[in-house]
Every structure is written in structure tokens, then in C-alpha cells.
Design a protein around this nucleic acid. Structure first.
Length: 476
RNA sequence: GGCCCGUUCGUCUAACGGUUAGGACUCUGGCCUCUCACGCCGGCAAUAGGGGUUCGAAUCCCCUACGGGUCACCA
């Protein structure tokens, strides 16, 4: 007698899993259910397992697993044990098929595909639900020689199948409404999804199955398998799906499906996680959750029952929040991915701190930093037209001359502030008259962080160079 | 079509059967200000509809409408 792993181990350690079919990348919705499973396992000091559902054998599941692990790594999630590939467990599944056959809980069905098609059409013509008519359930005759039979499970007839879903509540199905003697092994011997899922979930010792609610109506079928095999039935949580901003099903047209695309767009993993955990789940009014807070507060029981729409603005807001609060070192590290290397810059703190409240993504951050660090190659036309009249050029000229003869140290923003204020005082100028022309000279446009910060980042020598360059160009 | 699930501001959500139905994002008015942001103060905006039950319903029950899922030798 084979028993479930849970029974063998004699443990009730919380065990959850993420069981994607191999698509080549980790889907953003998949990450959410994975996160829920992960948090629930870790919160209860349990195990979080990864299984690839590749009974179909069409795609490269090794690549797929690698892509998922890469995404897990990016967001800081880890799974326990080795990855399980269903494609490598066919022998195991076969043992259970034989077992059910031997016990009379499953049987060979010799109906051909054509035969079944005819039957189905007849049913549909009569507006009946298409279903297998169990013609071979109690077959005792001589089987036809030329067909490879499928194996079907003897499903209960006119019975209620009930379970308590951790999210949706009490579920009750009538077996006749939703299932027939469904196939557990195809004519080529390959077992089917609902059969192997139940076996694996059981053998892997799953206590809590957290998955998309598109599986809700598969659950009764799996329960039939659990019961035929004498396995313990885990607790199910069916989490509603994610919709696009228009409330429709999420599809590739809606933008980033692959979790790693979020990295490419400059999102911080903690922002993505924070966004996802709050999408369909809440803890009072709290919006910001650190990893430890997620662990502390998450409970699948208060996941919402209804689908939620994906809202990119809120993700941006969260990302901005995490950028504002990240350490300087962290941001410098993240910027490397966008080809900006400022760890050796002697004004790196200033660069980071002057931009962190302005960037919604790390990518934007890098772009903004580059406009300050790199000498402008062009000047924004509108800004030039608006702010660079003859008088402004004159002021800039005086400003350069002043700086050249200004002897006090001024590499800090405060140094530039003292110098500039003195200059304004001497020439009876207002900051408004000076700031925009300086910005244009420094970054080529009328938008930048505080001019003192910008001047300090660029440094006295380059400040002079950039102003003189602008004046020169202006006179041409 | 059968079965199942769902429905609170545009969006994410809160609310022991008793709240002026709260918060967040977006949008928006103002303040701050060297620009842009950030920040701060304020504003717009919701219980799908109809019946019950109850002293009292967003909350419980029924019906309707509208969304969605699922009904394979896919997973």
C-alpha cells in the first residue's frame, strides 16, 4: 500500500508549491500566486516547492525552469528541494494507473476518437452536456485488437463533491454535472493533467494548494483521484486572476508579462512584490509592506474573492517610494544595469540624493543622471527661446568671470550657494533670473535638480566650460 | 448552453448587522519653490438593479443584470 508523503513523514508541516507549465518565462500573475504560496510556507516555517508541469513535452522545460529561477532570484524568493519535472516521473504515474486498474477503480476504454466525436455531436445536437457515456465502464467482453485503449477513472455517479476553499468558501458540486469517467492515461500511455497533479501534490506532501481560480473546476476531478488513491486532500485556495487595466483578461498586448521585463524597465523587485501582494489582498489600510511585514501579515484567507485589474500607476508610485527610501549604495548598484557607473564618482551621494525624488524608475534615474554628468550635446529649443535673451547671456558671462576669480572652495553645493548669492548681491540679481540660464548651460534644458546640486556635481572647471560653450554657441 | 465563481469611488481596497461608507493610486485646487519633482493641506468620486428578513442591510436570503472561469487523448 502506497501512502502519501505526508502520511509517510508523519508531519503536517505547511507545504506549498508553485507548479507552472513551461512557457519560457515567469508570468506576472504567476509571480503573485508564487509569492502567496511562498509567503504562506515561510510564515509557517514550512516548505515551498517548485514543480514543472511538462507532461506535454512540447517546450523546453529546462529553459523554463531556469527562467523561473532567475525571476525568483531577482525578487529574492527561494524554493526548497530540487525542481520536480513531471516528464521525469512517468514511471511513477504508471504505477498508480496500474494500481487503480488492479483495484477496479479505473478501466480501459476502447472507444475510438471518431466514435467519441460522433457521440459528442449527437449530445450537442440534443443540447446536452457533452460527456463520455461510460460505455466501457463495465466491459467484460473481448477487447478490439486494433485499438490502443485509454485508461479512464471510475468517477462517482450522482454524488456530491464538496470541499472548503480557503478563499471562495464552501464549494459543492454534483458529480453528474461536472465530470464523467475522465481519461487518466492517453492511448500512448502518457498520463493526463488532473491525474498527475493530484498524485504529485500528494506525494510532495502539499498541505496547502494555492493556485489560480481557473483551476477551481478542476478541483473536483482531482478530489476524485485523491479518493481513488486513498490520499489526504490538501487545503485549496483559489486566487482570482489579474485583469488588464480595462478589466479584461491580461494578454501580451497589455505590456509586460515576463517578470524580468520589469527589471528591464527599471522597477525594483520590492516594488513589484509590494504591488502584487496588495493586488487582491490587504491588511487594513496598509500600502507599504517590507518583506518581513509581508511575512508577518500575509494570510491567504483574506485574499479577495474577485478578480483585480492591473494598475500601472500604482506600481510606479510604489517604485518611486522604494527609490526614495533606498540606500545610496543600493541605487548605485541598480544603476549599473542601465550602464551608469558612478561608484567612483566623488559626488555620487549627491547625484543619488538629488535625483531620487524625481525618478519613477531606475531607468529614468540613469537617464537623468547622465544628462547631468555628460556635457549637453544639444539645447532644448523652447527653453533657449524662453530664457536665453541677450541679458541672460550677459549675466552668464559675468557669472563665469565671477567664478573664475572666486577663490573660496566651492565643490559642495553650499560653496556654490555662497558664491552665487554673493554674485547675485553684487549684481542685484534674483535667483529667478539666473537659475534657468544656468540650467540650460549645465544640462541643456530648463529642468534639473537644484542648481547648486547640479553645479556641485559637475564641478567648477566643467561648470565654466559648459557656460562658455553655451555662450560661444549662442553667438554663432 | 450546463456547472461554478464574482460585483463598494475610474483603479487597488477598508468597514462585529448600527461609520457623515474610510484609506491608497490617478485626476484636480492650493502651499512650498531657482525649474521639475518630492513633501504638506484640501477637492472630485462608490455599495450593479429589484425584492425580502430586521428597529436597523454594503454586510444575511431570493430574483434579475452584467462580468469571468470551466466543460479535450491541453495544462
Amino acid at each position: 500500500m502506497i501512502k502519501s508523503a505526508k502520511k509517510l513523514l508523519g508531519t503536517d508541516m505547511t507545504t506549498t508549491r508553485f507548479a507552472p507549465s513551461p512557457t519560457g518565462y515567469l508570468h506576472i500573475g504567476g509571480l503573485r500566486t508564487a509569492l502567496y504560496s511562498y509567503l504562506w510556507a515561510r510564515k509557517n516555517s514550512g516548505r515551498f516547492l517548485l514543480r514543472i508541469e511538462d507532461t506535454d513535452l512540447k517546450r523546453n522545460s529546462l529553459e523554463a525552469a531556469k527562467a523561473i529561477e532567475e525571476a525568483f532570484k531577482w525578487v529574492g524568493m527561494t524554493h526548497d528541494d530540487e525542481v520536480i519535472y513531471q516528464s521525469q516521473r512517468f514511471d511513477l504515474y504508471k504505477k498508480y494507473i496500474t494500481k487503480l486498474l488492479d483495484e477496479g477503480k479505473a478501466y480501459y476504454c476502447y472507444a475510438s476518437k471518431e466514435e467519441l466525436d460522433v457521440m459528442r455531436e449527437a449530445q450537442q445536437a440534443k443540447k446536452e452536456r457533452p460527456r463520455y457515456d461510460r460505455r466501457y465502464r463495465d466491459f467484460r467482453g473481448t477487447p478490439p485488437e486494433d485499438v490502443n485503449p485509454v485508461v479512464r477513472i471510475k468517477a462517482p455517479i450522482d454524488e456530491k463533491i464538496e470541499f472548503e476553499d480557503g478563499i471562495k468558501g464552501s464549494m459543492s458540486f454534483n458529480s453528474d454535472d461536472i465530470l464523467d469517467d475522465f481519461i487518466i492515461a492517453r492511448s500512448d500511455g502518457v498520463p493526463t493533467y488532473n491525474f498527475v497533479v493530484a498524485i504529485d501534490d500528494s506525494l510532495m506532501g502539499l498541505t496547502d494548494v494555492i493556485r489560480g481560480d481557473d483551476h477551481l473546476s478542476n478541483t473536483p476531478k482531482q478530489i476524485v483521484v485523491y479518493e481513488a488513491l486513498g490520499f489526504d486532500i490538501p487545503k485549496f485556495y483559489h486566487v482570482p486572476m489579474i485583469l488588464n487595466p480595462n478589466g479584461k483578461k491580461l494578454s501580451k498586448r497589455d505590456g509586460a508579462m515576463d517578470v524580468m521585463e520589469y527589471k528591464n524597465m527599471g522597477y525594483l523587485p520590492e516594488a513589484v512584490l509590494n504591488y502584487l501582494i496588495r493586488l487582491g489582498w490587504s491588511h487594513g489600510d496598509q500600502e507599504i509592506f517590507s518583506f518581513t511585514e509581508m511575512l508577518e501579515h500575509f494570510d491567504p484567507t483574506n485574499i479577495n474573492k474577485s478578480a483585480s485589474a492591473y494598475n500601472p500607476e500604482k506600481l510606479d508610485w510604489l517604485n518611486a517610494h522604494y527609490i526614495k527610501n533606498a540606500s545610496v549604495e543600493r541605487i548605485i548598484e541598480e544603476l549599473k544595469f542601465f550602464d551608469l557607473h558612478i561608484h567612483g564618482h566623488d559626488r555620487k551621494e549627491l547625484i543619488v540624493d538629488s535625483l531620487r525624488e524625481r525618478a519613477k524608475t531606475i531607468k529614468e534615474f540613469a537617464t537623468m543622471a547622465k544628462t547631468i554628468i555628460d556635457e549637453p550635446t544639444s539645447y532644448d529649443e523652447k527653453a533657449v527661446k524662453k530664457f536665453l535673451n541677450e541679458e541672460a547671456i550677459e549675466i552668464l558671462q559675468q557669472y563665469v568671470d565671477f567664478i573664475k576669480n572666486y577663490d573660496d572652495v566651492m565643490h559642495l553645493p553650499s560653496g556654490f550657494e555662497h558664491a552665487t548669492k554673493l554674485f547675485m548681491e553684487q549684481n542685484e540679481l534674483k535667483m529667478k533670473q539666473l537659475a534657468q540660464p544656468i540650467r540650460i548651460a549645465m544640462v541643456g534644458s530648463a529642468v534639473s535638480p537644484s542648481v547648486y546640486d547640479v553645479l556641485s556635481i559637475i564641478g567648477r572647471d566643467d561648470v565654466i566650460k559648459r557656460i562658455e560653450k553655451l555662450i560661444r554657441i549662442h553667438h554663432v
